[in-house]
């Protein structure tokens, strides 16, 4: 798998992401600068990592979504390229219109740094192939604005088309209000594009890829990607 991570001013989880991809693929992906106007040829996956691009000023991800490289990322996605946006990366995908809806301030109005559990809603995507449907995995969340919002019609459409990839749940897999710490609509933690090739999620599976650090709950997501491209 040929992956690349985009670096924006204020990005801060690019090294975590690089380590996770390295663990799954055996090599460290290059970092691309936000002012670049083109992506390298032959890329399989573009990753928009977590952080505070442009300090989260104005709205999280809003200014990054307007940066030169995002035009190339949109074209890449339109050609059927795979894009993973985590945390601030998910916010950018929403701001850039690559995924519907928006990420609002957490319902508690506080930054939330804690573990959450997510239920895998579909396992037939390039991002989730190594999970089972209904499987629950743990990940770190660390965000102030992760409260997913879309209007009711959009939410119904997303549900109808099966584009909800991950939902906040209890460790036992129940989708409850208590498990939904940031207040997201319908417990949505991760969302897919209609072609299933763009995934945005708020929590950080890249922080759970190493048994010596905090377990490997998040590793299947990266292994799924590596596997889909190894097979291709």
């Amino acid at each position: 798998m040929k992956a690349a991570i985009i670096l924006f001013p204020g990005t801060n989880r690019e090294r975590d992401m690089a380590l996770a991809l390295q663990r799954a693929t055996g090599h460290r992906p290059p970092l691309l600068w936000h002012r670049d106007t083109e992506l390298p040829a032959g890329l399989d996956l573009v990753v928009l990592p977590g952080g505070f691009s442009y300090g989260d000023y104005l709205r999280c991800g809003a200014m990054a979504a307007q940066s030169p490289i995002m035009r190339a990322v949109k074209e890449f996605a339109a050609r059927g390229g795979h894009v993973l946006g985590v945390c601030n990366g998910f916010q950018m995908l929403a701001e850039a219109g690559l995924l519907p809806g928006a990420l609002l301030r957490n319902a508690s109005l506080r930054f939330l740094s804690m573990d959450c559990h997510m239920r895998v809603e579909r396992a037939d995507t390039p991002f989730t192939g190594r999970f089972q449907r209904g499987q629950v995995f743990r990940a770190t969340m660390a965000h102030g604005d992760g409260n997913y919002f879309a209007d009711a019609a959009t939410l119904d459409r997303l549900e109808g088309e099966g584009l909800v990839a991950l939902r906040y749940a209890t460790p036992q897999g129940e989708v409850t209000a208590a498990a939904n710490r940031n207040g997201s609509a319908r417990n949505i933690a991760g969302l897919l594009s209609p072609n299933l090739r763009v995934l945005g999620l708020m929590p950080h599976p890249e922080n759970q890829v190493d048994p010596e650090i905090d377990g490997t709950d998040g590793l299947p997501l990266f292994e799924s990607l590596a596997e889909s491209f190894a097979a291709a």
Partner: peptide, 14 residues
């Protein structure tokens, strides 16, 4: 208190 601090960024917090 610590639920408001990102203790994991960097991916090295054991």
């Amino acid at each position: 208190i610590w639920d408001q601090y990102d203790s994991m960024v960097g991916g090295q917090t054991a």
